Simulated scan of single mutants.
Amino acid sequence: MTACQPAGFEATWDVASAIPGWLTEDQARLLFDTAQELPERPLIVEIGSHQGKSTVVLATAARALQGRVVAVDPFVEGRLFGGVTTRTKFERNVAETGLADTVELVADYSTRARPGWTRGIDYLYIDGKHDYWTLTDDLKWAAHLPVGAPILVHDCYSSIGVTLGVLAHVLPSRRLRYERRAGSMALFRVGAPSVADRWRILQEVPWWLRNVAVKVLLRLRLRPLARRLFGHESPYDPY
C-alpha cells in the first residue's frame, strides 16, 4: 500500500493485522466502514493508539477522503504499554504504511488534551485508559461532534470501568444513542436516543457479566473452567 493508492478493507487489514494490538478483524471492519461514511476531509480523533493497529485502519479510510487522524496517546511506561518503545513502534508503523502525512500525533493524556481542544471532529474512537473516570472524561470529546457522527468505544462490554461509564453516562443521555457492536467494540452516534436504543444497551449487560466472569476465571488460572462454562477458548481476555 502506498500513500497514493486508495485501499479497500481487505488490503488495509492485510497491513494492519501484522501490527500487534487488541483489535479483531470484525472490529477493524467496523472502524473502517464507519469512517468511509464520513464527509470529505474528515477529522478523526483516536484516543489510545498503542502501536498503531487501529490508527492504520482509520488513517487509510481517512486518506481516501482527504481527511486526517489525530492519535492521542501518552505512551505511558509499563508492561502492557511500553512507553517510549511503543511510541517508536507506532511512528515506524505509521511511516512504513505511507500514512505519516495523514496522522497527527498528540503524545498526551486525553484528559489533558481535551480541555484546550477547539477543532471540530467528525469521528471519535475511544480506546484509552479503561477506567470509569477516564471513559467519563473521554465521552466529553463528543461535544465537538455534529449530529449523526459516530463514536466507537473499544472494550465497551468487557471492561468493568468502561461499561459502568456507559451505563452511567450514555444510557441516560439525551444526546447519544447506541447502534450496534462488533465483539466488545460498540458504535454509538450523536443524536437523541429512542427507548429501543436505551433498551439495546441494557440487553448487552448479560454478555458483559459473562465477560467479567471469564476475566475472573483467567486471573485465577482457571482457563479450563472458562472454556467449559462459557466456551472461551483464548488465553486472553474477551474483547
Rank of each mutant, 00 (worst) to 15 (best):
W13F: 10
W13M: 09
V15L: 14
A16W: 09
S17Y: 10
W22T: 14
L23P: 07
T24Q: 07
E25S: 06
R29C: 13
Q36N: 15
R41H: 15
V45T: 10
H50T: 13
K53E: 04
T60A: 06
A62D: 05
L65P: 01
G67Q: 00
A71T: 08
V72D: 00
P74D: 00
F75N: 08
G83V: 10
E96M: 11
D101P: 00
T102D: 03
G116P: 01
W117S: 04
I121K: 04
I126P: 01
G128F: 01
D137V: 15
D137Q: 11
K140C: 09
P146H: 10
P146L: 13
V147I: 15
G148A: 15
P150D: 00
I151E: 00
L152Q: 07
L152M: 05
D155R: 13
Y157D: 02
G161N: 01
L167A: 07
V170S: 01
Y178W: 09
R181K: 12
R189I: 11
V190D: 02
A192E: 13
P193E: 11
P193C: 07
W208F: 13
V214E: 02
R221D: 14
L225S: 04
L225P: 02
F230G: 03
S234F: 07
P235M: 13
Y236Q: 14
